[in-house]
Design a protein around this nucleic acid. Structure first.
Lengths: 181, 181
DNA sequence: AGGCTCATGTAAACGGTTACATGATTAC
DNA sequence: GTAATCATGTAACCGTTTACATGAGCCT
């Protein structure tokens, strides 16, 4: 269970509904931990059963009722225990590199198209990250602890995207030069 | 099914047993696609059932018999179809950044210890990658297509590790400066 | 009229991890 | 003696993804 931890972390900021969590995930933690709405709803049920969160139903007349979740003391304890447990580096699943591993046996044009698409993806993403950076974190050294953590997430995002863009360019060059074969 | 594709790619080089595949994975594709022995064995059974690979039992007197798997024409077709299907960028699961997101609420020393451990991990890994690079890919432009794909995998590995190391240092500095809070 | 946002859920299938199970040979 | 290497498997569990299901209000 690790999505539950990401949810708890998000609930530290404020009580939220499953829907709220889904939206905030998209803009924030979701860049480091993807989660769909359905997954969040299911996880919240389990977490409520386990006593990590409380659910309060807020009646609405025009819309389905909202269920607002808040972290409990048990939840805070769970977070603390999790924080104290060493994190393994994420296990990589890079399908594109598996494809590249088959270079020479599979179509070169197809791979080039993939690389170009990937390049554009990273360009778009870095633009987004840089926008957030300019708007919210212009001077990292002046930030409070809590904001520093978020800044560092963004910072890794930007560095990683730069790396990916650089690599994509190299890869496109090297693959398109129809070398010795 | 995506491990199956990685297995097929590895079988393009030569027929192999589940055990062989496991070992080669550790040194090669495994850096982009982790897989345990058990997983590989199970996957091979499924793939044999589906006709993507053939299994030939090679009797051994002193050891358990080996089962050597080879890719079939169906398997080659599956690979081709897979290659033609666009790859989504991997969905990120970076637990450490989720922790960083909770900076201010969880213990700073614990996070610093994590960051230092991560730093060392990346140092070790880049040393390994650079060793392989020096030994096998000294001149990328002279490589054949097949080797170029592998070189690019390694190249991304090195760039990523450099990025991670740089980020770890920044993160350690910023987190340890007990700033305004 | 069509699409987006708000709002919550269930169920099945899939993929990956961990634990369990066995056992001989080789090298230190 | 102990650990590593060779060699193959089964079963349970867990977490993720995808498909299915519903429905009102708002904006163009």
């Amino acid at each position: 269970m690790a999505l539950s931890h990401a949810i708890l972390v998000s609930l530290l900021d404020r009580p939220q509904t499953g829907y709220d969590l889904g939206k905030r995930f998209e803009r924030t933690v979701g860049f480091f931990w993807k989660a769909s709405n359905q997954q969040i709803y299911q996880e919240l049920h389990k977490m409520a059963d386990a006593g990590w969160v409380t659910a309060e139903t807020v009646a609405q007349s025009d819309r389905p009722n909202r269920k607002v979740y808040d972290i409990t003391d048990t939840g805070r304890q769970v977070l603390e225990d999790w924080a104290a447990t060493p994190t393994d580096p994420p296990s990589v699943k890079e399908e594109l590199l598996v494809k590249l591993f088959a270079l020479g046996d599979i179509n070169t044009e197809t791979i080039l198209a993939e690389l170009r698409r990937r390049h554009d993806f990273h360009k778009t993403r870095i633009a987004y990250y840089e926008g957030v950076m300019r708007e919210y974190y212009p001077e990292p050294k002046k930030l409070k602890a809590r904001q520093r953590g978020r800044y560092l997430g963004l910072r890794l995002g930007i560095l990683s995207e730069q790396t990916s863009i650089k690599w994509c360019k190299e890869a496109i060059d090297l693959v398109s030069e129809s070398g010795s074969e």
